[in-house]
Computed example of a mutant assay.
Amino acid sequence: MSNSERFWNATIDELSKGYVYEREEQEYVCLLCNQKFEDGIIYPIDDTLFEARRAVVHHIEATHISVFHYLIKLGKKNTGLSEHQQDLLLCFKEGLTDKEIVKQQNGGSTSTIRNHRFKLREREKQAKVFLTLMNLLDSTQQKQEKLVEFHKGATMVDDRYATTEEEKQKILNTYFKQGVDGALETFPSKEKRKIIVLQNIAKRFEMRKVYKEKEVNEILKEIYNDFVTIRRYLIEYGFLNRSKDCTEYWVKN
């Protein structure tokens, strides 16, 4: 299971903790970056020994500050929150009073802040009803085709590019005639096909590994002769990140 699938398939309780326990692999997995901690292994961190579960909790605090801070930075596309609402939630998280929030924002009134609190509570109620409706709907839609999920950082992806697993396989078979791990025949011009192809190519790179530009080029040369174009699109579409001086590349979570 990819980290994106693991993240979006997690329950609210699992998302709140920021990690899941994979029983088959017997490891705790950070939902925010896919860092894994094997059960039964002792991890020395900052002169302290941690069991796997405590190690993943420590990792989340040290790397991501908190699950709250990570989630709120996902942006409006994933949270549905405006920048102002995100700022207010951060203030609420810090335990600031309405007066302190007004002072921090250099304007407004305490009654306005109270109104925002009320509206956010209303959204919480609406979200519970919506989640319940979707849960009930899922039980009657088991025969519906599953849509392809893209990682949280992927750009230029919206509902227009919704693709079923069957469509995805047809696209991959069309452009990777030697198999999904083989070379690319041609690079598609249509956006939906382009995204599916780039997603497949991105799987050739290891998570959390930093690549030099030469290493990226060598991998892409095996896939397609115009490797520069592929490399550019992987960056533009949010599948890879790179340093400002363009010397280092890594998979975008």
Rank of each mutant, 00 (worst) to 15 (best):
R231E: 08
F150H: 14
F150P: 11
E51Q: 11
T63D: 01
F187K: 14
K143L: 07
E215P: 08
T110H: 00
S243R: 04
A52C: 04
S139I: 13
Q199C: 02
I235M: 15
S66R: 01
E124Q: 04
K152H: 09
I171P: 09
T63F: 05
M156S: 12
Y161K: 12
D46N: 15
T132F: 10
G179Q: 04
K209C: 05
D226I: 13
N200P: 04
T63R: 05
L184I: 13
A162R: 11
L88V: 02
S243K: 07
I42A: 15
K76H: 06
K177E: 04
T186K: 13
R208G: 02
V148Q: 11
W250H: 01
Y21H: 15
S111Y: 03
T97L: 01
D158S: 15
H69Q: 02
R23N: 11
T11F: 08
R53W: 02
K146V: 15
N78R: 07
T247N: 07
M1N: 10
E215H: 10
D181M: 06
T163S: 15
D245P: 03
A127P: 00
M156Q: 08
Y161H: 14
V180T: 13
D226H: 15
K125Y: 05
A55D: 02
H59K: 00
R114L: 00
Q178A: 15
N253S: 08
R204L: 10
F37V: 10
F205Y: 05
Q104S: 10
H116W: 13
E215F: 11
E38K: 15
G182M: 09
R242H: 11
I45F: 14
A154N: 11
L131N: 01
N9C: 09
A162M: 15
L131S: 04
L172Y: 01
Y237V: 06
Q126I: 07
I60L: 04
A10G: 06
K192A: 04
V129D: 02
Q141N: 15
F239G: 13
K209V: 13
F118Q: 05
A183M: 12
Y233L: 14
L120K: 02
I196E: 02
N200H: 11
N3A: 08
R121I: 09
E222T: 08
C33L: 08
N3D: 10
L172S: 05
V228A: 13
L133K: 08
H69A: 05
Q199F: 07
K252F: 10
L220S: 08
Q26R: 12
E38S: 12
N225H: 13
N115Q: 06
Q199N: 09
R54V: 03
L234Y: 12
T163E: 14
K152N: 06
L89Y: 05
S243T: 10
D87T: 09
C33G: 08
T186C: 09
V20R: 04
V148H: 02
D138I: 03
D138P: 00
D13Q: 09
R231N: 11
K93V: 00
N173F: 06
K190P: 00
C30A: 08
K36Y: 04
L90F: 03
